[in-house]
Design a protein around this nucleic acid. Structure first.
Length: 569
RNA sequence: UGGGGGAUCGUCUAGUGGUAGGACUACGGACUCUGACUCCGUCUGCCGAGGUUCGAAUCCUCGUCCCCCAGCCA
């Protein structure tokens, strides 16, 4: 049944293009895509969109999707990132089999092709400084000027390029440039740089090279080498397509891929720019790339998000060419939807309020039967201990209940889930502070299990935990990272860092959980009834003191009634 | 005032000359041993102005607004 949802992938303009290409036999009926991350950061939910698109396309059209690391800038790239990216990709549920490539695998071929361009008079070594090149480039409205080195002979260019490779020059002294058109209206076509000198070790090729190819030269050729048919990237590369095509047209390689662009994902209440994410990590604002508040896949994973929820989200947001911002509420919806059907229900009291059942026998402990998941009877049931002293949520009692408040109040009867009806008889306060520290209640033995034989109803059912058997835990309540839906919005000199939600993490200690939660396994997901979904964080847990992360709250219409104050700027 | 793209409910997205549909959100209601889930209902939309046409979100014209490009980043 769930399959019905999973198999209907909504169409989009890229699928339409592919269907058309298949019809006309453009690539001989082949569909080959690739996911090309630069290993200079961790994957985030925006990458997930691209991953789902590229792998999803391959899957639907019986094609292939390669993993290719775009590692042409040794200054920024690290193996740590390569490993993390692969782990996240696998976790998300995608398999690239043996098709794992690196642009750096092609450095030899790239070099050979660059030499060919030089020999064809289509590239030259420029010895202008970076600053001079910038000045020669012109502006958006004025054409650029040709470099004085543009007319160097083929022989001289070959020699210089060879010596660049041999390490005879300093960084910045020379670059290899394509010879296109310095007055081209598209700035990228004004003799773009193809190679630069970088005397830095590369995470894979080590000291082997001291010149590195630029993105525009590398990417299209890598696509062609891998015989990619549809090279899908984001909107900001639209201008690069002209250069992508130019390079491939000059080289006439056996395969001829084409580039298509779609709008990258933006999500409300978070940031998805790699630069900003790195900043949050490097400046210690987040505990790491996998801080559960991060929109990274590793952060979401630790937060308790499932691959299924993320994939489903990626499917629902669609693929188009217009810049857009997806409401994070949709992401929250997909994780609730997934967890609702798979997460076992448990009872846990986050802010305990002691309740003594006066007429319950001292020392008696009953095991009550509780359903594990009403959405899935196959998940069976468990037993939960009940005794004279229990805890309920502080929120579930009001000395002076407002109207529409159904929960416990003096003299009022409510149900304890799977247990008994109890009535509040007395309120005990701390004489010093006036704070309610204990409730004295009575129970109705006839309501065991939660039903009254006389058919009387109660308006509320509360979750609870028996004090003696409770597991003490730390619970980390996570909320949205930013208080503004668009943290990048320019507001008098403020940056996104000024809008970090001070309540994005609240740590609660002394939480009381039902005993079954005492031996949760790594990453286990639960619904704490009436509260939300929580994930066992084994890394933060210690023996006898488990730690749970709140993935997302349950929808809460009572909270909506009370605090209609949650503003959305 | 160079070039390349883009504008459909609050948000995302279908629709390619024939009743503007879905999802999320919001708001009502039903149900309920989770104020959850589920179900039902409601609200709100084709950037603007002309034109072509029996008929336009769709085609044409002219505007408007938004995004991208002046890295030896990707």
């Amino acid at each position: 049944m769930a399959d019905i949802v999973d198999t209907k992938t909504p169409s989009n303009f890229i699928r339409a293009i592919i269907e058309e290409d298949l019809k006309t036999g453009k690539h001989g009926g082949r569909v080959a895509t690739r996911f090309p991350p630069e290993p200079n950061g961790y994957l985030h939910i925006g990458h997930a969109k691209s991953i789902c698109l590229n792998f999803g396309l391959a899957q639907s059209f019986n094609g292939t999707c390669n993993l290719r690391f775009d590692d042409t800038n040794p200054a920024k790239e690290e193996v740590e990132y390569v490993d993390a990216i692969k782990e996240d990709l696998r976790w998300l549920g995608f398999d690239w089999q043996d098709r794992e490539f690196f642009a750096s695998d092609y450095f030899d071929q790239l070099y050979t092709l660059a030499v060919r361009l030089i020999k064809d008079g289509k590239a030259y070594v420029d010895s202008l400084s970076a600053e001079e090149i910038r000045q020669y480039r012109g502006t958006l409205t004025e054409p650029g000027r040709e470099s004085p080195f543009r007319k160097r002979s083929v022989e001289e260019n070959i020699d210089l390029f060879q010596r660049m490779r041999d390490g005879q020059f300093e960084e910045g002294s020379h670059v290899l440039r394509a010879k296109i058109d310095m007055s081209h209206p598209n700035m990228l076509m004004r003799d773009p740089t193809l190679y630069r000198i970088r005397k830095a070790p590369h995470h894979r090729t080590g000291e082997q090279w001291c010149i590195y190819p630029m993105y525009d030269f590398t990417h299209c050729i890598s696509d062609a080498i891998e015989c990619i048919t549809h090279s899908i990237c984001t909107l900001e590369f639209e201008n690069n397509r002209a250069l992508y095509d130019w390079v491939l047209d000059q080289l006439a390689l056996p395969c001829r891929p084409h580039q298509y662009e779609f709008a990258r994902l933006n999500l409300s209440y978070t940031v998805l720019s790699k630069r900003k994410l790195i900043q949050l990590v490097k400046e210690g604002i987040m505990s790491g790339w996998d801080d559960p508040r991060m929109p990274t896949l590793s952060g979401l994973r630790r937060r308790g998000y499932t691959p299924e929820a993320i994939r489903n989200f990626c499917e629902r947001i669609g693929v188009a060419k217009a810049n857009s911002v997806v409401d994070v509420a949709l992401l929250e919806h997909t994780i609730r939807e997934d967890l609702n059907r798979r997460a076992p229900r448990m009872m846990g009291v986050l802010r305990p309020l002691k309740v003594t059942i006066e007429n319950y026998p001292d020392g008696q402990v009953e095991e009550l039967d509780a359903v594990n998941n009403p959405e899935d009877p196959a998940m069976g049931s468990r037993s939960v201990p009940f005794s004279k002293v229990i805890y309920i949520e502080q929120d579930d009692f009001r000395e002076e209940p407002p109207k529409k408040y159904f929960r416990l109040a003096p003299g009022r009867e409510v149900r304890l889930r799977y247990a008994y009806f109890i009535t509040c008889r007395d309120v005990i306060k701390d004489p010093a502070t006036g704070e309610v520290i204990e409730l004295r209640c009575t129970y109705d033995p006839a309501t065991r299990g939660g039903d009254a034989p006389d058919g009387r109803k109660v308006k509320a059912t509360l979750h609870w935990v028996s004090a003696a058997q409770a597991v003490d835990a730390r619970v980390r309540l996570y909320d949205r990272l930013f208080v503004k839906s668009d943290p990048d919005e320019k507001v008098d000199g403020k940056t996104f860092l000024d809008f970090i939600n001070p309540e994005s993490l609240e740590v609660l200690d002394g939480c009381k959980l039902e005993p079954a939660l005492g031996n949760a396994s790594a990453g286990a997901l639960y619904q704490f009834e009436r509260l939300g979904y929580f994930c066992f964080d084994i890394r933060e847990s210690s023996p006898g003191r488990p730690v749970f992360n709140r993935t997302v709250t349950l929808k809460d219409s009572w909270a909506k009634i009370t605090q209609n104050s949650r503003k959305t700027p």
